[in-house]
Design a protein around this nucleic acid. Structure first.
Lengths: 206, 206, 206, 206
DNA sequence: CATGAATGAGGCTTCATTCAT
DNA sequence: GATGAATGAAGCCTCATTCAT
């Protein structure tokens, strides 16, 4: 139905507007009215599509998580070659996505904050937990793959390294957020070289 | 003067109370009244010592940064032995401090959030930038030391690895925050083994 | 015209739906949307038939008054016998109508309330005034009839007694509304016995 | 403590202001801001003393009930003489209180309305039920007293007559509210004469 | 005619901050 | 200095009404 389509479209428009405003002003700093203006709709219209400011925020969160996961999956599926190569390619890809997500990055911090306090705590915490788990899973299977191929040393603990790596990428972007001069691309590259050489069963040639 | 001392003491009491309440309820979720109750003083008294809720929050931030830095410095100064050993000892020490900072960890997220939006943005952002820079500095000099001693490979990029490492530690605690079952101690240990072996100029015996 | 009939029918459907919802939730508690749902029409359709929520409420009021008056008139016209007998029969009939109007009774209170405040005040107040006047008229002529027949004492003030009686019936239903255990049928019966014996010129045999 | 006294005094000031405004504009028509202005306090101050608009309204209700009951009790305790005399004196007293409660009478209708719908329903309904019960009790014991003295006929049903009487008084005031020309004093007087003569065991001399 | 998506005025309530005691 | 009662700006949300389809 055309009707349903239009509704969905408008919902998305509000969602994107919300994402932008939340990113700019934070959750508390954002007025529902601002979102409405940004979306080009009336204040009441926002409530036709979302039950509350909180709900809308959570919807933005879900949208963000989905978009991020989708991006990661695409990156990974596009990768080929040795495990080392795929690992550092994934790292590069994530670091390169910084420019396009820069403006939205403050959202991530708002999400963290929301999961730490507020009544939304549980919803967010659970989703984060799951999100990290999923991402660790993806990376650790990549590493396990490398072990099985004999590319990485068998005593490497894939889960632990994956967890640390996932975190590292996150935190490099965080540092990039705080410091415009921080070269997260270079940091990630050099770091991955060192790490991968630590994982490798033999001296790397790359 | 006894008088000045008493004033300082009360200020600290309010600060600690604020830290606790902010940690529990987040910045927006915290009422100045709650802090006053927790500190055992009148609501108006809080304003005798701090100009505004925002100021108080920033004061908590500064207190937190200082405490954390002090802790890190103590850890490091207590370390001895090879660079590898000192590095993994630092990692252990940071990871072990989790239990005692667990209850306060949500503060970190509030700080991130504050630096992302809100009017306090600049103050926080600057402080974070500096804090990360300092910490990277500490770690990178540790690594450079290892290189100079011939313990680590000369082509290792100390700054990059330090940046990544600092982030890793941060992010492992973050994952511990989200997931009670996540074993950040183990993850850090196994990860450091892999990384250090990647940094080392020769197969490690440790 | 079939066309006109269909329109009228729908208007009535909306009216009845409105009566039900107003009775259940009160005027302020009622959403126009609720009425539309109950009537099985679109929200906009309500406005095709009534100019505003207030108008609709007044229409319900008029409908209610008319229905009540019609009922009273039927009761009275069906009565025969002595004035005493007709009076107590009227009382019984009114009290017995409780069960069927129970669910709608809260409407009466809403009407009272509407006449007490709100912008609709004048409309309602006037209608109530007239309604009570009419009803007093009916009852007082019944009593006057009894006086003329020599059944009631000549010094009885028909208007005053009628006014009080009308009120008594109202208020017994009110008490029934507040208290499910209250036996308004019995109270009315015993009370009418006493009153009628007070009106009668001689000891009653009935 | 002077302090407590001042607090109580202000609470009362707000309560009275609320009573006035509610009486004038009805519950929905009243803005909390209006009450604050009428009470000469800030809007927020109202909330220092009452949790919500609804709570304030219920407090007004309780205050009204108490004041009414107190008045009735005073009237009754001041009465002497025969049961008939006390009964009609009570009636007179109630009818005479009209002038002083006229301006507040619309409150009663608001209370009725509140007990009919709205979320406050239960609170109000219960209180009304109890209030009527209490009042019926008072009147019926007065009547029973008359029976015991041999003044009223033994077959009189005190409870029923009391219930009806209580209602009658209520409803006469209601009619006075709707119709300025309605002479409730006279109606009550004449009606009581008739009723009392119906209750009496012998022709009254009064 | 019928509909229901869109609207925005309006109201309750919260809470940081002030200031008289 | 310490207090907490008082304040009112500010914001979320509701809902009667409109109007394009």
């Amino acid at each position: 139905m055309v009707y349903e389509a239009r509704r969905k479209e408008k919902k998305e428009r509000i969602l994107e507007a919300a994402a932008q405003v939340f990113a700019m002003r934070g959750y508390s700093g954002t007025l529902v009215a601002d979102i409405a203006v940004q979306a080009g709709v009336g204040k009441g219209t926002v409530y036709e599509y979302f039950d509350s400011k909180e709900d809308l925020f959570f919807a933005v969160f879900e949208w963000f998580v989905q978009a991020t996961e989708a991006k990661a999956k695409i990156s990974i599926s596009a990768l080929g070659g040795s495990a080392s190569h795929r690992l550092s390619a994934l790292s590069d890809s994530l670091m390169q996505s910084w420019d396009e997500m820069k403006d939205m990055y403050s959202l991530v911090m708002e999400f963290w904050s929301a999961s730490a306090s507020s009544q939304m705590r549980e919803r967010f915490k659970l989703a984060f937990k799951q999100g990290y788990k999923d991402f660790r899973q993806i990376v650790s299977s990549l590493i396990r793959d490398g072990i099985e191929r004999g590319e990485f040393r068998p005593e490497v603990d894939a889960e632990s390294v994956a967890a640390a790596l996932v975190g590292t990428w996150d935190a490099l972007l965080l540092q990039a957020w705080f410091d415009e001069d921080f070269d997260h691309l270079r940091a990630a590259k050099r770091f991955m070289e060192a790490l991968i050489s630590g994982l490798a069963s033999k001296p790397q040639l790359d």
